[in-house]
Write a protein that binds this DNA or RNA. Structure first.
Lengths: 337, 337
DNA sequence: CTGAAAGCGCTTACAG
DNA sequence: CTGAAAGCGCTTACAG
C-alpha cells in the first residue's frame, strides 16, 4: 500500500518531506512564530513541491474563525447596493477575506435566517443593510455586526448623513427660486426614507417661514423607478392649476422614474420642472438630462464598515459620512427656457 | 469544574442531554438514517433545549464538502451581472447553499486567485463569468465549474444564444426598412462581443445581398454607457453626408449611452435614428424613450448553471438559452415622424 | 527554537 | 437500530 494517495497534500506530508514536525510546518504557515531560516527554507520547498494548500475547514475548526465576512442586502440589483457590494468586496480582499453574499428581499425572516447561516459558518463579521426598520432587534452575535445605510438592530450604523444631504437639496432649490415644490418620499417604514424627508421638509418650511412662502406637496413612493414614474405623473397632471416647478426625490431611481413621467406628459426638464435625486448611482450622470443629485460615498461607507469589523481596538459606534450635492442638467431656475 | 461552558452546545452536549451516543445524534442530523422515533424525539428536544447548531467547519473537515457555491463576476455593478447574481443566489438558497461572491475586475490573475480561494474553502461548485477570453485554461478543479455568459477555460458554458439574438435585431431593422445601419460592437476580445457582432453583421450582409443593398458601419465600443455615448456621437456627427437611420448596439448600456449621444446632438429617437440594445436590463424599459432590445433570461441562465453543478447525474455540457426581441419605443421605420 | 501530543466537533465504517 | 471509536487536518499549550 502506497502512503501517497491521489488526494491533496496535508501538513503531515509536508512535514515528512521536509523532515520536520507538523508543528514546525504550522509555525511557518503562521509566519509570526520564529523558525530557523534553514528549516523554514526546507518547509517552504516541500510546500511548493507538494503544491500544498492549507485546509481551511481544519483551521476553522481549531481556531473558530475563518477569513470570511458576510454581506446581506435587500436587493443586489439596486444600483446603490451593488455599488456598495463592490466596495465591500474590495475592502474584504484587501484584508485577505472572502465575502458571502445573501439577499433578504426586504424580508426580516429571510434576513435573520441568513444571519444565522453566516454565524454558523464562523464568519469574522457581518455587514448588513437592514431589510426593514426594526429588524434584527433580538439578535445576539459573537462577532461584530455593522449595518450600513439602514440600521440593523442595535448595531452600529455607517450611513450617509441623509438629513443633511436632503437639506442641501432644499437650500439649492430654494436659492434657485423655486417656491412650488414637491417631494417624493421614500418608504416611511425605513429610517432612510424618514430622515431624507424630514431633512428636506423641515428645511423647506424653515426657509418658507423666514423668506418667501413655499407651497410644498409631499407624495409617497418606494425607492424604485416605477413608483417614481407613477407618482410624478399624478403630481404633474394634477398640478395644472397650481404647477409644481421642482421635484425632489428620495432616490435617484425615483428621480429617474420621475424624468420618464415628466417626459411622457410632454414636459421639459429642467425648463418646465426641475428634478433632483439622491444617491448618485452611475446612471445618474447618463440619463437624459443628466441628473442633479446628492452623492453617497459608497467607498467610504464600505471602508468605515470594514474598519469597524476588523479594528478590534476601535470602539464600535455609528458614524455619518457626508453627502455631496452634484449639480448637473436636470435642475435650473423656474421658468428658465 | 462545571462541564457546562458558556460556549455553544456541541453534538456531545446534545448526546448527553438526550442520553444517547453522539453517533445517534449525528444520525438524526443526517435525517437519512433511520432512528427510532422515541430516541429521535429525545434528541430533537435536547437540540432545541440547548439551542444546538451544527459546527459547519467540523462537518466540512470530515466530509470535505460544504454548502457553499462560489460566484465570480467581472463587475457586480454591471446591471446584467447583478441581475444574474440575484438569480444565482436565489437558486443557491433553494438548494440550501450560501454563495461566496468575488469580483475579477476583468483581470485574469485576480480571477484565478479567487477561484483558488474558493477551492481552498471546499465549495460545492463555482459559477463564473469569465474575466476575458482564454482565462481559466490551465485550471483543474475537483468540483464542478460552469461558466455563464462568457466562457471560462474548457468548462461548460450556459449562455444566451447571442448570435441568434443579434440576427433577430438585424431582421427586425431590415424589415422596418432601414438600409443605412451602424453596429456598435462589444469588445472583440470577448466571445460575446464577437458572437453578437458576427450574428448581426452576417445577417445584414445576407439580407443586403438578396434584397436592397445595405450600407453597414461597424464601430468598436466596450460594453459600458460611456463608450456608447462617445461612439454614437462620432457616428452621428460624421454621418451628415450619409446618414445612419439605425444603430444596433451590443449591449443595453452601449445603447443607453447612444441614446444620450443622439440627444446631445439634438437628434430624436426613433424619428431621426432608431437605437436597439441587447440584454434587457431593468433600466431598458425606463429610459426615454423605452429601449427596444433582446431579453436575456437571467433566471434561466442561473437555473441551468446551478443544475449543472448539483445534478451529478447530468452530463455537464454547454447549453444555449434563447433571447427574445422586445420591441419598445426606441425603434421605428426610418423617416417616421 | 522544535517536537510530541491533545483536541477542535463532526461523520462513518465496524460490530453487535 | 445503536454505540464505541477512529480520524478528518489543523493549532497550540507544554516540555525540553
Amino acid at each position: 500500500m502506497n502512503s501517497k494517495k491521489n488526494n491533496a497534500a496535508t501538513i503531515k506530508d509536508v512535514a515528512e518531506a521536509a523532515g520536520v514536525s507538523v508543528g514546525t510546518v504550522s509555525r511557518v504557515l503562521a509566519k509570526e512564530s520564529a523558525v530557523k531560516p534553514a528549516l523554514q527554507a526546507r518547509v517552504l520547498k516541500a510546500m511548493a513541491d507538494l503544491d500544498y494548500r492549507v485546509n481551511i475547514a481544519a483551521r476553522a475548526l481549531r481556531t473558530r474563525q475563518i477569513d470570511l465576512v458576510g454581506l446581506i442586502l435587500p436587493d443586489i440589483t439596486n444600483p446603490f447596493f451593488s455599488q456598495l457590494a463592490k466596495c465591500v468586496e474590495v475592502e474584504a480582499v484587501k484584508r485577505g477575506h472572502c465575502v458571502m453574499l445573501a439577499s433578504s428581499h426586504g424580508d426580516c425572516e429571510t434576513e435573520s435566517s441568513h444571519i444565522q447561516a453566516f454565524l454558523d459558518r464562523s464568519v469574522r463579521g457581518i455587514v448588513v443593510v437592514a431589510a426593514a426598520d426594526g429588524s434584527g432587534q433580538a439578535l445576539k452575535s459573537p462577532v461584530p455586526i455593522v449595518s450600513v445605510d439602514r440600521r440593523f438592530g442595535r448595531y452600529p450604523l455607517i450611513a450617509t448623513d441623509h438629513e443633511k444631504g436632503a437639506e442641501l437639496v432644499a437650500d439649492y432649490l430654494y436659492e434657485l427660486g423655486h417656491r412650488h415644490i414637491a417631494y417624493i418620499a421614500g418608504p416611511q417604514d425605513t429610517e432612510v426614507g424618514r430622515l431624507r424627508r424630514d431633512g428636506f421638509v423641515k428645511r423647506i418650511r424653515a426657509l418658507g417661514s423666514r423668506g418667501d412662502r413655499v407651497t410644498l406637496k409631499i407624495r409617497q413612493g418606494r425607492f424604485d423607478y416605477n413608483s417614481g414614474e407613477r407618482v410624478a405623473r399624478k403630481l404633474l397632471e394634477a398640478s395644472a392649476s397650481l404647477p409644481v416647478t421642482a421635484i425632489a426625490a428620495a432616490s435617484d431611481q425615483l428621480a429617474i422614474g420621475a424624468l420618464r413621467g415628466a417626459r411622457d406628459l410632454g414636459l421639459l426638464v429642467p425648463e418646465d420642472v426641475s428634478i433632483v435625486g439622491f444617491d448618485d448611482i452611475e446612471l445618474a450622470s447618463l440619463v437624459v438630462p443628466r441628473l442633479t443629485t446628492v452623492r453617497q460615498q459608497t467607498d467610504l461607507l464600505a471602508k468605515e464598515a470594514m474598519d469597524l469589523i476588523f479594528d478590534d481596538a476601535r470602539k464600535p459606534r455609528s458614524q455619518l459620512v457626508s453627502g455631496e450635492l452634484v449639480i448637473r442638467d436636470s435642475s435650473s431656475s423656474p421658468g428658465y427656457s
